[in-house]
Design a protein around this nucleic acid. Structure first.
Length: 422
DNA sequence: CGTCCACAGGAATGACGGGCGG
DNA sequence: CCGCCCGTCATTCCTGTGGACG
C-alpha cells in the first residue's frame, strides 16, 4: 500500500537491515548507574566506613563530597546508599535513604517535599509553609525511629539560589529528635562552595569530607571499556576510537560523563551513516557535533540584546574587523537595533553583556590599552563563524540582516586604521 | 612627567514580573 | 485573591586607569 513512494520505508528498512552498532545504548546515558564502579573503590569504602555505624543504630557523621563534573560522585553516593539500605533491610535496621537533586528541585520547599515523599509522607505541591513541611518530616523521623540518610546533590546550586537557611535547619534537626536521625550527604561540583556557608553550617555539614579526583586517561579507558562492552555489539567499536574518547575526556578535566557522551554520539553517527563500526573519525565527528550542539543551544536561548551583540561581532568580522573594541561594537549594535525594530540599550549595559558572553565562551573579550587612544576591551568571536551564521539564518528576525553592511564602519575605517595599527 | 583618551566597572536606583505567605 | 517582597534586568552617575603622546 505504501510502496516505494513512501520516503520513510526506505529509512526504516535501511536501519533494520544495516549493521547494528549498539546492543544496549542505555548504559551510555549520563544517568545510568552501573553495578560496578571502576577506580572508585577507595571512595566507596571510605563512604561506607563513615555510614556503617548507622546499621548499628549509631548516629554517623554528615558528609560533604567534592569533585568536578563526571568524577563519579553521584554514582558512588547512590551505589553506596543502595547497598547500605539493602543491608539495613537484611538485619531489620530502619534505615532509609533519599536522593534529591537540589538544582532540579530548585527551592527549599521542594527539597523538603522530596525528602518527605521518600519516607512516604504526602505533601501537596504547594500550600504549606516551608516550616510546616519541615516539622512533618521531623515528627515522622521521630515517631518511626528512622535513620534517614539523604543525598543532597548539587547542593551548591541550592545555596547559591536560596542561601543556607535550609541546611542550617537540617543540620540542627537531630537536636530536637528523641529517636531516629537525619544524616546529610552533600554533593558539590564547586570547590569554592564552602565559602558561601555560615561557619556553623559548614562545620556540622562537613564532619567528613570526601574529595573525588578527576579520572586519568587510563582510568577513563577502563571505565569506557566496561561500558562499551555492554553497549556495543562486539567488534563494532575500534580500539582507536575508544582510546581517543578517553584521551579527549582526560584532557578536559577527566570527565567521565563527557567520555561516555563522546562514545554514544560517535556510535549514533556511525549507525546513522550505515558504517560497520565506530571509528576514530566518528569520535572526532562526535566531538564537533557535541560542541556545535552546545553552541547552538546557548546561542538560541540567548536574550535578544545579547543576540544582537553577537550579530554585531559577526558583522564586524565580515568587514574584516577581526577584533574590535567596545566602542566599534556599540556603534554597529546601535545601528542594527532600529533595523530590528528594537530600542538599543546603553553602552554600560552592552559592556556588561559583552562580559557575560565572554564568560560563556561565545566570544573573547580582554581589556587592552591604546595609551593616548584610550582603554577598552578587545572583542573577538570565540566560536566558529559558520555556527553563528547558521543560527541567525534559522531565526526569522535575523535572517535578512546577516549580510547587512553597517554604515558606521565606512566612516570608522579611516580613523581606526590609524589607532588600531599596532 | 603630567595629560587625557575611551572606555572599565562599581554603586545606587528604578521598572517589571513572578512567587509566596497570609 | 491580594499585597508584599524579592530577583532580574536596565539606566544613571560615577570614579578609576594603562600607557602613548607632547
Amino acid at each position: 500500500m505504501l510502496g516505494s513512494n513512501d520516503p520513510l520505508s526506505e529509512v526504516f528498512e535501511h536501519f533494520l537491515s544495516g549493521p547494528h552498532i549498539f546492543k544496549d545504548r542505555e548504559v551510555l546515558r549520563p544517568d545510568y548507574i552501573p553495578s560496578h564502579l571502576p577506580h572508585r573503590k577507595d571512595e566507596i569504602i571510605h563512604l561506607g566506613k563513615i555510614l556503617a555505624p548507622s546499621l548499628d543504630g549509631v548516629r554517623c557523621s554528615n558528609i560533604l563530597i567534592y569533585g568536578k563534573t563526571g568524577t563519579g560522585k553521584t554514582a558512588v553516593a547512590k551505589y553506596t546508599l543502595d547497598r547500605l539500605t539493602k543491608k539495613g533491610e537484611e538485619i531489620n535496621a530502619s534505615i532509609r535513604s533519599s536522593y534529591v537533586n537540589c538544582r532540579i528541585a530548585g527551592t527549599p520547599y521542594r527539597v523538603l517535599a522530596n525528602l518527605c515523599h521518600s519516607i512516604d509522607i504526602e505533601i501537596p505541591f504547594t500550600g504549606l509553609a516551608t516550616g510546616e513541611v519541615f516539622d512533618r518530616l521531623k515528627n515522622t523521623i521521630n515517631s518511626r525511629r528512622l535513620f534517614l540518610i539523604c543525598v543532597l546533590d548539587e547542593i551548591d546550586a541550592l545555596v547559591k539560589d536560596c542561601g543556607d537557611s535550609l541546611l542550617y535547619e537540617l543540620t540542627r534537626i537531630n537536636e530536637g529528635l528523641e529517636s531516629g536521625k537525619l544524616i546529610i550527604v552533600g554533593v558539590s561540583n564547586d570547590l569554592k562552595f564552602k565559602e558561601l556557608l555560615d561557619p556553623r553550617v559548614l562545620s556540622s555539614l562537613s564532619e567528613e569530607e570526601v574529595v573525588f579526583k578527576p579520572y586519568t586517561a587510563l582510568e577513563l579507558k577502563d571505565i569506557l571499556e566496561e561500558r562499551a562492552n555492554a553497549a556495543f555489539v562486539r567488534g563494532r567499536l575500534t580500539n582507536g576510537a575508544l582510546n581517543l574518547c578517553s584521551a579527549l575526556a582526560a584532557s578536559e578535566h577527566g570527565d567521565a560523563r563527557r567520555a561516555l557522551d563522546l562514545l554514544r554520539v560517535a556510535g549514533e553517527l556511525a549507525e546513522r551513516e550505515g558504517a560497520s563500526e565506530a571509528s576514530e573519525e566518528h569520535v572526532r565527528w562526535a566531538q564537533e557535533k557535541i560542541e556545535k550542539d552546545r553552541v547552538v543551544e546557548v546561542l538560541t536561548t540567548l536574550p535578544l540584546h545579547s543576540k544582537i551583540v553577537m550579530l554585531g561581532i559577526l558583522l564586524l568580522k565580515k568587514s574584516s574587523h577581526e577584533n574590535s573594541t567596545t566602542g566599534d561594537l556599540f556603534e554597529v549594535y546601535k545601528e542594527v537595533c532600529p533595523r530590528l525594530g528594537v530600542d538599543h540599550l546603553t553602552q554600560r549595559r552592552v559592556s556588561g553583556l559583552i562580559n557575560e558572553l565572554d564568560l560563556v565562551g561565545l566570544i573573547n573579550a580582554r581589556v587592552v590599552s591604546f595609551g593616548r587612544y584610550g582603554r577598552t576591551k578587545r572583542v573577538s568571536l570565540g566560536i566558529l563563524e559558520e555556527a553563528l551564521v547558521e543560527v541567525f539564518k534559522r531565526d526569522p528576525l535575523f535572517d535578512s540582516i546577516v549580510n547587512y553592511h553597517p554604515q558606521c564602519l565606512i566612516r570608522r575605517h579611516k580613523k581606526s586604521n590609524k589607532s588600531l595599527e599596532i
